[in-house]
Amino acid sequence: MKIFLLLLIGLVIGTLVILFGGGGAAIYLGILTGLFSLKAASASATSLMTALPSLIIGAWSYYRQGKINTKIGNQMLLAAIPAVIVGALLSKYIPANLYKWLIGVVLILLGINMLIQKKNKTSDSMHKQGHARLQASLFGIFGGLMVGVAGMSGGAVIIAGLFLLGLKDFQATATSTYVLVFMTATGALFHIAGGQVDWATGLPLMIGALVGAIIAPKLAQLLAKTKITKYMKPTTGVLLILLGTKSLL
């Protein structure tokens, strides 16, 4: 029964996070600690290892569809990877309450920004502006710190940053998945060193998530032809505000 439940949870989360550009590690982290009572260090390592294979499959599928903007994605990664490493090394020195408060404030501000931004600029025009690279780097740094410090995926910040940089609907989610592959892989290396992966719990989650990662890009192709894409950005903004509020409470 436990294995079936884990497979089902992995399938649902894997489909949704790849479809909407997240990594899922934060969700897995909450499930592993809250529902299955894993210790924090083990849960962080297990959540990142669970999320990584499905991210790779999702990114590869989006790449084959030509949806990934590697230019902006690589700009984020240049800042994100060092931030993951620094965050992992400093995680033991950062008070948990301070970290949760900072995450909450940043997520709320990002969500509000997404809701009030009237018009997306095209990614090409953003490339011509001098501050675009700096913006991409800042989003990458904060997302990387989320991975390094707490074993989260950092997907909320990355997808918000990509929308604010002008990428639209599933191009933003595809590029986010690409960025999260490398961030999660780097974070997994450090968190595995600090906590043992619970394979008995993580493997069924991983298998379910892999199936979801195969489904999600195909589902994205179908949804891209519908009106649902115009609701992706405001919906993401509302979710960020809710996540930020939860972090502050």
Rank of each mutant, 00 (worst) to 15 (best):
A188W: 01
F4R: 00
G30A: 10
I31A: 09
K100G: 11
K119N: 14
L107K: 05
G140Q: 02
L38K: 06
D124G: 05
L138N: 05
T245L: 15
N113M: 13
L219I: 13
L89S: 07
F182R: 00
L115F: 10
G23V: 07
T235K: 06
L165Y: 03
G104R: 06
K67Y: 13
S42W: 05
N120P: 14
L48G: 01
S91N: 11
G143N: 04
L6A: 05
P217Y: 04
G194W: 05
S54T: 09
K168E: 11
K246M: 09
V149L: 03
A51V: 09
L48R: 00
S247G: 02
L8R: 08
L32T: 04
Y231W: 15
A43F: 01
K233C: 06
G148H: 00
F20Y: 13
L242F: 13
P204R: 02
G143C: 08
T33S: 09
G208K: 04
L210M: 15
I228R: 04
L109A: 14
K121S: 15
Q135F: 15
I214E: 09
K121V: 15
I192Q: 12
I141W: 03
A59V: 05
K39L: 14
V211L: 14
G151K: 03
T15W: 05
K121L: 15
I215Y: 10
F36I: 09
S137A: 15
A193Y: 11
L19T: 03
T201I: 13
G111Q: 08
H131K: 15
W60T: 12
A224W: 01
A136C: 01
L162K: 05
L145S: 02
K100E: 14
M76V: 11
T46P: 10
L240Y: 08
M152K: 00
L89I: 14
L7T: 03
V238N: 07
S44M: 15
N69Q: 12
I94F: 06
S137M: 14
Y231H: 08
Q196I: 12
G195E: 07
L134M: 13
I241K: 01
I116L: 12
G194A: 10
Y99I: 10
A174M: 08
Q171W: 05
